[in-house]
Amino acid sequence: MTRFPIERSGDLIRIGSRPPHPERTALVEARGALLLWDVLDRSPHPAAEIHDLALAADWLWEVYGPYLTYGFELGVTSFTTEEASPVLDAARALAHLHWAEAWWPASHETGVPALAPGLLRAETAWRTSAVEHLLDDVEAVERALTGIDLAALTTLAGHPILGAEARALAASVEGLAEDHGITLEHEPQRVQSDWALAAGGSESGDLVLASGTDAVDWALMPQGLADAAAEATWTATMRAGTLTLAVTLPAAPDARDLPLTARIAGLDLPLSLDGDTFTGDIEAPQGFMMLPAADRTLQVFAPGFALPAPSDPEAADRRAAILAFAAERLADPAASLTERAARP
């Protein structure tokens, strides 16, 4: 049973409230409303922001049961529902896949493997089709199908336990594609790189003068670059008479080779993927060593994605909770095929 406050402000009706952070938010953009699940909250029912009740009334009953609409008319300020329906489940599953695409915390350090992107896309398309009748985007299914590579499912098709499910998904997606006039790819899957643990550390023979470690704000970079649990490390080294500043950041499993930038003490270091670590170094002014420790904090961001920002002191706790949630999903038989297939 879920109990929600109902609040009206202007043209907006809120059922419950937005999850506290984007990184905890699983979203479905429905016709006339946003549906928002907090992934750390186990309630099956989402919060909703209804911006067009006339449109949303058509499907709201599938999510909250048939009485909510009357509640609006009566001006109630809270609402309780036990509604369970396949459509609610499907919407939640879709929202979860959207969340996973954006925020899945792949991490060597905590043993959270990367999700297979091709599989994730195929499953998302399939879930999208289950709730297409309530989505805002009238071409959501076509959009989700576009660019899917069914070869991503062939590896899994031979899996002893998940194989049947993978084959069924492939068949379903193929049928969907035909219904929507989309041609799917069947390219051979890119060979995934072997996972190896991050090497890190400074080269021997150099004199390490100072070093430090800072948390990384994962909202400042796309999903799947940095290890979700790792911190970035800077090292100031005297090497052949030059002060060199090096930054290392452990990469996520199957990390994409996209540029990152580390900013420390006003210096920007481009980082690039080297094995399982994003690294970069730069010659530092001698004055670097004189700076107070507070001025030597490290921020890592993806250029073109976000501007550097100081990290939120509460971010570490939130991140730990999400990592724990992901680990739990990997062991959950009710989790998505994509998550179960990633299980080591």
Partner: peptide, 19 residues
């Protein structure tokens, strides 16, 4: 206006930093 929020939730590039 909703789009701005949806972008954050979907972890799309922040507008101020985008190309």
């Amino acid at each position: 206006q909703r789009e701005s929020y949806v972008h954050r939730v979907l972890r799309l590039p922040h507008n101020e930093a985008a190309p």
